[in-house]
Simulated assay, not measured.
Amino acid sequence: MVVIYGINQHLNPIKAALSDAIHYCMQSVLGMPEDKRAHRFVPLEKEDFYYPGGRSDAYTVIEINLMKGRKPDTQKQLIKTLFKEIESAIGIEPIDIEITIKEQEKYQWGFRGITGDEAVDLKYKVNV
Rank of each mutant, 00 (worst) to 15 (best):
V3G: 04
I4M: 11
Y5T: 10
G6K: 03
G6P: 07
N8Q: 14
H10V: 04
L11T: 02
L11W: 12
L11R: 10
N12S: 13
I14V: 14
I14F: 08
K15G: 05
K15L: 12
A17S: 15
D20W: 10
I22G: 00
Y24R: 12
M26K: 01
G31V: 00
G31W: 02
G31M: 00
M32H: 05
E34F: 10
E34S: 10
D35C: 01
K36N: 10
R37H: 07
R37A: 06
H39T: 03
H39P: 03
R40H: 14
R40W: 11
R40S: 08
P43L: 01
E45L: 13
E45F: 13
D48E: 14
F49E: 06
Y50M: 12
Y51W: 11
G54D: 09
R55L: 05
R55S: 02
S56F: 13
S56Y: 11
A58P: 03
Y59C: 02
Y59F: 15
V61K: 10
V61G: 07
I62Y: 06
I62M: 07
E63W: 14
N65F: 15
M67D: 06
G69M: 05
G69Q: 05
G69V: 06
R70E: 11
P72S: 10
T74A: 14
K76Q: 15
I79F: 15
K80R: 15
K80E: 15
T81K: 14
T81Q: 14
T81D: 12
T81I: 12
F83W: 13
K84G: 13
K84L: 15
E85W: 10
I86M: 07
I86Q: 04
A89G: 09
I90F: 04
G91C: 02
E93I: 07
E98H: 13
E98M: 12
E98K: 10
I99S: 07
T100W: 13
T100F: 11
E103R: 03
E103I: 01
Q104P: 05
Q104L: 14
Y107A: 04
Y107N: 07
W109Q: 00
G110C: 03
G110P: 09
G110N: 03
R112C: 08
R112M: 09
G116W: 00
G116M: 01
V120P: 01
L122K: 13
L122T: 06
L122D: 11
L122M: 10
K123H: 14
Y124M: 02
Y124F: 09
K125A: 10
K125H: 12
K125I: 01
N127W: 09
N127M: 04
V128R: 08
